[in-house]
Design a protein around this nucleic acid. Sequence first.
DNA 1: CGTCTTTATTCAAACGTTTGAATAATTATG
DNA 2: CATAATTATTCAAACGTTTGAATAAAGACG
Lengths: 369, 369
Amino acid sequence: MTQGKSGHVTLLDVARACGFSVSTVSIVLSEAPLSQNVAAKTREQVRTMARKLGYHPDAFARSLRSRSSQTIGVLAFDLSDPFCIPVVRGIQAGLYPARYLPLLIDAQTQRRLFDSYVKMILERRAESLIVIASWVFDEANLLADLKKNHVPIVIIGRDLSERGINSVLVDNEAGGALAMRHLTELGHKRIAVIRGPEEMFDSEPRWAGIQRAAVSAGIKLNPKLVFQLPGLVDPASGFEGGIRLAKEMLASERPFTAVVAFDDLTALGVVRGLTGAGVRIPDHCAVVGFDGVLPAEVATPAITTIRQPLKEMGMQAAEWVMQAIAKRGRGIDEAPRLYKAQPELVVRDSTSVPPQRRRLDRERNGREP
Amino acid sequence: MTQGKSGHVTLLDVARACGFSVSTVSIVLSEAPLSQNVAAKTREQVRTMARKLGYHPDAFARSLRSRSSQTIGVLAFDLSDPFCIPVVRGIQAGLYPARYLPLLIDAQTQRRLFDSYVKMILERRAESLIVIASWVFDEANLLADLKKNHVPIVIIGRDLSERGINSVLVDNEAGGALAMRHLTELGHKRIAVIRGPEEMFDSEPRWAGIQRAAVSAGIKLNPKLVFQLPGLVDPASGFEGGIRLAKEMLASERPFTAVVAFDDLTALGVVRGLTGAGVRIPDHCAVVGFDGVLPAEVATPAITTIRQPLKEMGMQAAEWVMQAIAKRGRGIDEAPRLYKAQPELVVRDSTSVPPQRRRLDRERNGREP
DNA sequence: CGTCTTTATTCAAACGTTTGAATAATTATG
DNA sequence: CATAATTATTCAAACGTTTGAATAAAGACG
């Protein structure tokens, strides 16, 4: 074969092999508008030869020339957060039809890596950037670096629309309310709450939702039963926090029949902590989480949770990104968009009616069987 | 600014701005060998100007010219398998020092997607490909397509060294033995086993290890207590299988005090199934898993498991890949390598001594306190 | 038969970088 | 002082593709 030193078959190789010019071959193989003018016989010849030689277009040359990389940078702040995977799937699904490829990177919760990868992604001329902010992170110069480069950005998991960035996230307020309402409807009155760490932007709205639902159910939350996770280092550390706070809860000696945990891992920590002290879930105490990640699903008892429509959120981000690219600069300064996905209550086995009520139920059932 | 229509700052822009030629600027900024010959003052000027204009080299042009993409394709067969993330981290860690970027793609357990992504990765001229075969998959034409393109390949999670492909995987035989030995050392005699699905290549060696350890402990495995997962569609379906088989175990009415599950999710399924029937873990029955993934760690009781050194495996793959690239073709036809990582027993709360023995222990303790 | 359109193909420039070879300027050597 | 060696900078070609403009050949029209 006539392959150049690169080891790859090029247009020139194909052209020589079938006796046409590089242009013709390019036009045929890339199905450019001009290819209508190419004789059917020629087209056939070119295509056959390309296949025979095993020609694959070189994405670099193509991108260089056509200034489009067909690539979207996807930067996950911490890919080990189970939150991320369904989001990524959504993004991939949204990108695939347009033959765009995500350049997916895990910043491993490290600022330094994050910055460095942003740079590498820009060098690769990703046409847009999607950031999955699954975990605490401060984005000070992210903004600066990117606005400069006219790259459309979408952030998933935080509301930065105020600061000019398209944002996709779950409606945390609604989710918090959903969790609380579930418990009050089951009849719980003394409910402990574990709020998220201060640095996490989800914490506040979830807490607001919880309070709203408590008020509308006519329930007073005892401030002594409201806890807060400390600033955390990685997504799994909510688990440790949950264990510790469960113990504090018990030590406080204030009675409670249910716990609203900040997220699923925290809920799993609470289950661990309470179980260790002989409290049975859900018989003695109900626990509800937030997110809907795998570990909560396969634990026993399975954790009742507020599910985020993660895949949908990823697809939404991908869709916006594709739209922004289609506009190519025009309208880049539109007002940033905000999409709040609606969470969904998933009732599983970690919640049931509170103990007193269960006793009542039992008596009632005993009376009229 | 003098930016061209691309919106990006190019070498030419920098060159014009500081009055040197493109060559000089390139030499300085890419720190080519020749840059030693460039006057210190010039170097300084160029660098300052580049920073001022916000120059980022264009990876396409660079790759096109230097025929190296600084990219490694990483194709996960199913990224939702918790197995993958630590592996990916290892790969990223191994690649980072060389400033290589993984092009990470999730094939979502779909052959069609897999093939299509392989193609896209090749078009992007990834210099090598790492496949994470976390889950059942058949690689018939994978081989064909890639051997043709002279791209070095490493597969993680399967032994394809016989078929000419560098392979990194855990020593499944040793792992199986480790699991079984743990149980026999605790004093278990009647042990149920759930083997992996036939299509999974891990299944056989794990089973072999289990048998070996049983023999050397002088224990006979009751064939009626050996079960097998059906062919599965996704990694989480081991969980469902575990539930079902746990019920079959109980239905068989053959006594057992421990279960070796194929993997962690299966183990979690077994816990669910047994717990549902009133069997307490680990008091009535011990359960041991395999993999060491997050869900097994945060469940209550935490699952005793055989941990795969996933990060290490990812780094090993990255290292091989970098070596292969350093050789650039020379030695591409070396014998394929095989690395079997040593698994590690992680004792947690799902295993303890069998019930009979516990009774004995208690009596003995009672006798001499 | 000259001109105009249509059809089929090719030219050549451009994308932004790297790099071997060339040039120019300076300094050291014989 | 000529030559060689060193230092500083630039030329120009190349990487593989796309694409507007050019060319060439054929058919259609007046």
